[in-house]
Design a protein around this nucleic acid. Structure first.
Length: 260
DNA sequence: ATGGTTGGTCGCCAA
C-alpha cells in the first residue's frame, strides 16, 4: 500500500502535474489538500481515466480536500461534527479495505495572536475530539495532510528565526502532541531523525533554491500502521520547476508505504 | 525600510 499526501494548491492549475504524480508513483491513494474548487469544477473524468476513484469535499475558491483511490472508498465522511468553521471544506475521511483514512487541511492561522490563530486552536480542539469519538487507537488509521505545524525544531530550516512564528509556536506544537498522545505516531520520524526533510517552501525570496523550508505535511498513524510503515519519502523533484513548464505547488508530495 | 510569489478571480484575499 502506497499512500501520498500533497497540498496541490489548486487542482485545476495542476491537473497535469497531478496526473504526473499518479503516473510516476502509482500510489494506491493520493490525498489532496487545497483543491480550491467546487464539486462541479472537479476533474472526475480525467482522474477516472487515470484509474482512480475520487471523493471530493470542495467549496468555491478556497480549501477543498480529496481522496483519490485505485480501490473504491467506503464510509466517506465530508467534514466532521463540531467543526467551528463548517463552511470550510478541510477534512475528508474514508476507508479503503481495512485502512481508515483521514485527510486534513489544517487552518493556517496566519500569525500568533490573530483571530485566525485562535480559530486554528479551536479547530484543532474539535478535530481531536472527533478523532477520539470516531476512531480507536487500535484501528488501522492514517491521518494525513497539511498540518501547518512543525512538530519540533528539527522540522525547521532556521529554528531561531522561526521561534514562535506561525507554524512553529509552542501552542501549535502542543496541539499536535495532543494527537500523538491519543495514539498516533509521526511516521516520518520512524525512519529519519532529521533535521529535515522539508515539505513546504515559500514561493517568495527563492526559498526553495536557498533551502528555506519547513516540514508541515505529515502522515500520522496508529500503532498497527506504524508497525507496517516501511518508508516515508518526500518527492522534492515535484517542487522543482524544471519537470514541466507549469509552476509547482509550494508543497512537495509525501509518500508513505505500508507492508501487506 | 520592507522584503515579494502564486492562485482564484478581476479587487483584492489567502497562503
Amino acid at each position: 500500500m502506497k499512500l501520498i499526501t500533497w497540498n496541490v494548491n489548486s487542482l485545476r492549475a495542476r491537473l497535469e502535474r497531478t496526473l504526473g504524480v499518479l503516473d510516476r508513483h502509482a500510489p494506491d491513494v493520493l490525498a489532496l489538500q487545497e483543491t480550491k474548487c467546487t464539486d462541479d469544477q472537479f476533474p472526475f473524468q480525467e482522474l477516472e481515466a487515470a484509474g482512480y476513484h475520487a471523493v471530493h469535499h470542495g467549496q468555491p475558491k478556497y480549501n477543498g480536500v480529496a481522496l483519490l483511490s485505485r480501490e473504491p472508498v467506503d464510509d466517506v465522511r465530508r467534514g466532521f461534527p463540531g467543526d467551528p468553521a463548517p463552511d470550510m471544506a478541510r477534512v475528508v475521511g474514508g476507508r479503503v479495505g481495512d485502512l481508515h483514512l483521514l485527510n486534513c487541511y489544517v487552518v493556517n492561522g496566519q500569525a500568533p495572536g490573530s483571530d485566525k490563530f485562535a480559530l486554528k486552536m479551536r479547530w484543532l480542539d474539535a478535530l481531536r475530539d472527533h478523532l477520539a469519538s470516531a476512531y480507536d487507537p487500535s484501528d488501522r488509521l492514517v491521518v494525513v495532510g497539511d498540518w501547518n505545524i512543525t512538530p519540533d525544531d528539527r522540522d525547521v530550516h532556521d529554528p531561531e528565526k522561526w521561534r514562535e512564528q506561525i507554524h512553529c509556536t509552542e501552542e501549535e506544537r502542543a496541539q499536535l502532541r495532543g494527537f500523538l498522545d491519543w495514539g498516533l505516531t509521526d511516521l516520518h520520524r520512524l525512519h529519519d531523525d532529521g533535521p529535515g526533510p522539508w515539505t513546504w517552501w515559500d514561493y517568495r525570496m527563492g526559498a526553495f533554491a536557498r533551502g528555506w523550508g519547513l516540514r508541515i505535511d505529515l502522515a500520522l498513524g496508529t500503532a498497527p500502521v506504524a508497525a507496517a510503515c516501511t518508508t516515508v519519502e518526500v518527492d522534492k523533484d515535484e517542487r522543482r520547476k524544471t519537470t514541466h513548464e507549469t509552476n509547482p505547488s509550494d508543497h512537495a508530495p509525501v509518500a508513505v508505504t505500508l507492508s501487506s
